[in-house]
Structures are given as C-alpha cells and as structure tokens.
Design a protein around this nucleic acid. Structure first.
Lengths: 186, 186
DNA sequence: TTCCAGCTGTAGACAGTGTCTACGCCGCTC
DNA sequence: GAGCGGCGTAGACACTGTCTACAGCTGGAA
C-alpha cells in the first residue's frame, strides 16, 4: 500500500503535512520536497496550487462524511446530537483540515464537487430535522440551514477561542445542547 | 483631512484597497506603493505584516460596532433582529473586511485588543437575550453564545454561497428569523 | 552659528513562494 | 531498432515579507 503513483502520494503527504504543521506549511514546494520530487513535479497532476489543496480538502470531506455516517440509528434527536458532536469533534481533532475545508478562497470550489460532498451531508441533517420536528414554523430546509450554520459557527468560534472567552465555558457541550434544543423539538 | 502622518495613511489606504480588491491584494508592498512610499517604509510603524493587518481589522471592528450601536431602542426582540440584520449586512457589504476580521491566523489576535472590541458587542447581545428571555434552560450567557455562533455561521456560509445552495433560498432573512425564533422567546 | 543626535524614509539584499518553459530520460509501441 | 509521448528535472521570472545599511532632515545644545 502506498506506492500508487505520484498523484496519490502528493495528496497523502499533503494530508499528513497539514495535520502536522498546519495550513500555512502546506506549500506546493514543501509537499514536493517531502514527497521526494522536484518542485515542478506536482504540476503534472495539479496545474495550480488551488487544485492540490482542493484534492487534499476532498480527503477531509470524505473523512468527515465517514464520521457522520458512523452515528448509530435511534431517535432523531439522539442522532442529531451525535451528528453535532461528530462535526465539532472533527473540527477539534483536525483543525488544519477544518480550516482548509472552509477556506473557499483556497479551494477552486466549483471544481471540488462540493455538491457531491457536502450536499448529501446537509440532506441527512435536513431529514433528521424534519423527523424530529422543527421548532419554528419555517420550512424544514430553512431550519436545517439555520442549524447547520449554528453548528458551523460554534465549531469555528470555539476553535478560535472566542466562545470560551465570551461565555467563560471550557466545554462546548452545553453550547451544542442549547443549539439543538433551540432549533428542534425532541 | 487626511494628512496626519504615514501611519494613518497606510491604514486608510489599506482599508480602501481591501474593500476594492479583496484580502489577497492587501500586501505590505502594495499598500506602501499606493501610499506613495517605498516598500520598507511601513516597517517603522508596523514591524510585521500581521500588525498592519491587525490595525486595518481594528478599523473594521470599530465600523461594525458603530453599526450595531445604531440600532434603535425598542422591544428586545426587535433590537435583536435589528442587530442580527446589521451583522449580516456588514458581512455582505464588506466581504473583504469581514473575512479579515475573522482570519485569526492573520491577526496577532492578542495584540488586537479583541477583548476591547468584540467583548462589549457580545455583552450587548447577552443583555438583550436575557431581557427577551432565552428559550433554553441554559444560562443566558450560553444562549447568547449559541446565538452569536448562529449569526456568525449564517453570515459566513451565506457569503460563501453554501446556504443558498443548500436551502435554495435567495434571501437570508428567513434564516435570521428562524435563528432568532429558535434561541429567544419574544 | 555649528555640530551632533535621532527620527523617517530609501534602497538593496535575501530566502521563500507559485507559475512557466525548455530540457532529459525512460518505456512503449510500430 | 527507431521514434514518440508521458514523467520528472532544472532553471528562470515576478512577487512576497523581512532585514540591514544608508541618506536627509529636523531640533536642540554648545
């Protein structure tokens, strides 16, 4: 395993470098260096820096999707809470990847197949919201959108330390609980 | 007006450049160029790129604070809705500035006096939440944190087009309404 | 008046980046 | 066996942020 062409190797090296040293270290030339090739080599597979970053981010979306797919069946409320925890846990466990995944200025977003990666994720959320019963009178899709934004905002602001500072908390769980209780009935 | 030393001029030029050409154009050398000085000049006042960006971002926080301070008195629910609209409107009107303000990797955050700029803003939000009555049993501070995260998430995801794509909406107002209804009673 | 010190901005260098282009090399096919 | 096409190399270019040495002007002291 692991010797399947330079293209995959670059992505693998990139993912590891991202996890180890953060987004700012994810240079085209550094990835090439760690892959043991010259700085021009990646160009054969990724004509531009954006495209390499996009390929790496896609790996992250696949990972997150897998995590979310792993939440067990059960009452929709429980599933939603597990999903929210998974989202936040992913952001905390892979801060560099999380940052990259939502840095749309780095992602050639159209190219990324965002529709294929994050829309199914949203669809799952929307189904669960409809099943659990949205609290507001708005359509389930709108409530699901607001809930998603809430989860994302918590993940983002928490990873920056802003929410700890503002609320004085040191555990994001109550925030998640409050967000879920707010948007959905059960 | 406008001839008060290079330091202020650099910040002014930076703000305009940011609004006009986006965050990626906000180069130390380009700012110097537009200010009509050599590339080394800014170093006297901003020893590092981060510090110039932080000074520019501070201008943004002041602007946002002013906008928020401009919401009229009235029932807390109305004030909250106006505040939410102001937050989102700011993000939509100044996308570059909004991006910069929350790019903590660019901001020498400790240096920025974040406590002085965004904590009062949060305090206002928390007061209004307490006044309007949080829907959840959680402490008002926690509910306010969740609501802030929700507003921020909506602003962020909307500015990326993700929410339009996911919910099919073309107006963020229903999302704001849903978020407010979710977190707070009146 | 003269001189000197300090602040301010200039100019050049350096390492690093992404991108582009010309060039070897190697294996495959005709 | 000869040619060719894909793959990786190597060098160049413009650009970035940072550092350092230097000029020019100012204001105050002798």
């Amino acid at each position: 395993m692991g010797d399947d062409g330079l293209r995959d190797k670059l992505v693998r090296v990139g993912v590891e470098l991202l996890a180890r040293e953060g987004l700012s270290a994810l240079t085209l030339r550094e990835v090439a260096r760690r892959a043991g090739v010259s700085h021009g080599a990646p160009r054969r597979y990724f004509p531009t820096h954006l495209e390499l970053l996009s390929a790496i981010a896609r790996e992250g979306f696949a990972d997150l999707t897998a995590q979310v797919a792993g939440v067990p069946a059960g009452p929709p409320g429980d599933q939603l809470m597990a999903l929210a925890r998974a989202y936040l846990a992913f952001a905390r466990a892979n801060p560099g990847m999380f940052e990259l995944m939502f840095r749309h200025d780095l992602l050639a977003s159209g190219h990324l197949g965002l529709r294929d990666t994050s829309l199914p994720l949203f669809a799952r959320l929307a189904d669960l919201v409809a099943e659990a019963g949205p609290r507001s009178a708005a359509p389930a899709r709108v409530v699901a959108g607001a809930l998603w934004a809430n989860l994302h905002g918590i993940a983002q602001l928490w990873s920056w330390g802003s929410l700890q500072l503002a609320t004085g908390a040191d555990d994001p769980e109550p925030l998640l609980r409050a967000a879920l209780d707010a948007h959905v009935l059960a």
